[in-house]
Every structure is written in C-alpha cells, then in structure tokens.
C-alpha cells in the first residue's frame, strides 16, 4: 500500500507535482499514466525519498520511506535503468545493494536467474544493452522480495520479447498479492497490464479509476457498418430513431446509439446487404489524449492561426472539460 497525501513539488515557480492524493492498493497492477513531463518520475522519486516534497507526504505501508527498516525488503523500484555504476559487474551491483539491506547473497543469483542475466552476471554493466540494463534494474527491484514494486517506464527500449516478459512479470507479481505501480506515457501499454489507472497531467490528478470504468466512460463505442446502399440504410436508421451516423474515411457508417444486433435486424427487415457490421471501441489512446490534451507539456507544432486557444489550468479531475477543450482545438486546427 502506497498513500500519497497532498504531494507537491515546486521547482522555482513551476509546479511539477500539484497536490496529488491517491493510494496504490495491493493485488492489482496500478498504471500511472501521463504525458511526458506530467510529473510521473518526480512523483516516483519523492515516493523513494530521493526528492524532497515541497508539501505533502508519501507513506509506504504507513511509514515514511526513511523510517523503513531495510527499505529494499518493503519496496523495490526500477527508476531508470542507468542508476548503475557501469564499471561494476551485474553481480557486484546487486551484491552491494543486497548487503546494505542484509539480504542473503544467494538471493543475488536468484534474481539474476529470474531476469535472465545469469550468463552475463560477471560482465560489467556498462556494456549492457538498454534491455539488459532494464532487466538489471528489475533484478534490483526484486532483490528484497518486496511487497511493493514500482516501475518507471519499464518497457522503454525493450524488444517485443522483453515487453511481453515485463507485462507477465507485473501481472504475476500482482497476482501474488503485491502492490505493483507502473508508470507509462502509453495508454495502449497500460490497457494491456493495468487493472487500475491513475492519470496525471501537469502534475495534477486527472483520474483515479479502475481500468474497466475508464474504458466504459472514455472510449466512444459505435458500430461500424459497410453497405453498398448507404442511403437506404441511413433512412432505415433514421426511422428506427437513431441519430445521423458519421461517415468514416472509407465510406463506412459509424452508428453510436444502436447496438449491432438491432442494426442487423433493421438491415434484415429492409433487405439491405451488409458487408460489415462490427462493434468498435475508439482507442483508449484517443481517450487518454483527449483527457490530457490541455495538460500536455510540449505540444508538437506551432499554434494554427484562428485556432481556439487551449485553456490553461482547469481544476483537476474535470474530465469532461479536458475533452471539450480538445474537441474545440481539434476543430480549430481542421478549419
């Protein structure tokens, strides 16, 4: 269990983390999502007492990090893969960390085996690839067999096999009843691993919700239909009380307010040929972008003349407002 209360970090006049309050519970994978520069890494560093909060506190199993007796046995963290002295071998890197927390030496070989680095245990880590470095960082996190694990962007730089491995590892750890907290700027990645979701933008909490709820609330679901007679279908839909369907780039119709079954029945009644009838969900990536659009630190491209300006700070958690401003901006850019 990790509890954040009013956690705030200010650098000069810039608020990197703004009054974050949330808990990370055991037994599930909690995704920590936000665009680059949202304050995810700063938050995680404060959780480990590496950075001192300007205000607020973090409690790990009810204690401050500094009060933990042999912290690696409580919480293991992969912050960035480069928190390693490249001149030291993988084995010695883990050994010095293990010794400081009185973790038995045999555990070093165990975690090296777990992450698949046994063969290069006696090699200096400076020569490791990004993926191997990431595995070494994960080995360090697992060293104390902690109940809480924290991974900052663990899939960065990994090959598909490595990504698959990490996803399964995180799910396994959560299934063992551990608290797993993982950050990412990729919604698609979170959708595959996380059960619970915490979204931040510009240091503010935007959402604290279960993944299922997030999907239900944020993803636009619709039915995609392709037919050789779109006009007749439009008429049929209108008569059935559906609002006018949108037309996709390839000419397919997108119906939001009728289920696929009902549309199929309508088509059968009117003797319409359908080439496709498929329920769709707008990507979560889109939902995430909509949520964080106004809080993205570095916008690509220059503002388009005539575009509706993106409103600045909006009270945290105002999901609809974020989405609204994104829609406005999108339309502005397209005009």
């Amino acid at each position: 269990m990790i509890e954040l209360e009013g956690l705030t970090k200010r650098y000069g006049d810039k608020l990197a983390v703004d009054n974050l309050t949330f808990s990370v519970r055991p037994g599930v994978v909690t995704g920590f999502l936000g665009p680059n520069g949202a304050g995810k890494s700063t938050t995680m560093r404060m959780m480990l007492d590496l950075d001192r909060p300007t205000a607020g506190s973090v409690r790990i199993d009810g204690k401050h990090y500094r009060q933990l007796d042999e912290p690696l046995k409580h919480i293991g963290a992969l912050l960035d893969a480069k928190a390693v002295h490249g001149g030291r071998t993988a084995h010695n890197h883990l050994l010095c960390l293990a010794q400081s927390n009185r973790i038995p030496r045999a555990r070093v070989d165990e975690v090296l085996e777990t992450v698949g680095l046994t063969a290069v245990a006696k090699k200096r880590s400076g020569g490791f690839s990004l993926g191997m470095g990431q595995r070494l960082g994960i080995a360090a996190a697992l060293l104390g067999d902690p109940r809480i694990l924290m991974f900052d962007e663990p899939v960065n730089g990994l090959d598909p096999e490595g990504i698959h491995w990490i996803r399964n590892l995180m799910k396994d750890l959560a299934a063992q009843g551990r608290t797993v907290f993982v950050s990412s700027h990729l919604m698609s990645e979170m959708a595959l691993t996380a059960d619970h979701l915490i979204v931040i933008g510009r240091g503010k909490l935007l959402a604290d919700t279960s993944m299922a709820d997030f999907i239900a609330v944020n993803s636009r679901s619709f039915v995609r239909i392709r037919t050789p007679e779109p006009e007749r279908l439009r008429d049929a839909l209108a008569k059935a009380g559906a609002s006018a369907p949108a037309t996709a780039a390839d000419g397919a119709l997108e119906v939001e307010d009728l289920p696929a079954e009902r549309i199929g029945e309508l088509a059968a009644e009117h003797g319409l040929v359908l080439h496709e009838l498929s329920p769709q969900r707008a990507s979560l990536e889109e939902a995430f972008m909509r949520m964080t659009a106004a809080s993205v630190e570095y916008q690509a491209g220059a503002p388009v003349p005539g575009a509706v300006p993106v409103p600045g700070a909006v009270p945290g958690g105002a999901v609809q407002q974020w989405g609204g401003s994104w829609e406005q901006r999108k339309q502005g850019k397209e005009s």
């Binding site: 480990l48 933990l68 690696l72 960390l97």
Partner: peptide, 13 residues
C-alpha cells in the same frame, strides 16, 4: 553514473 539513486533507495539515511 546515477548509482546514487540506487544507493539512496537502499540506504535512505
């Protein structure tokens, strides 16, 4: 090397 972050996470005192 950034090792300081690993070191302080292990020994926060």
């Amino acid at each position: 090397t950034g090792m300081i972050r690993s070191s302080l996470a292990a020994v926060p005192q």
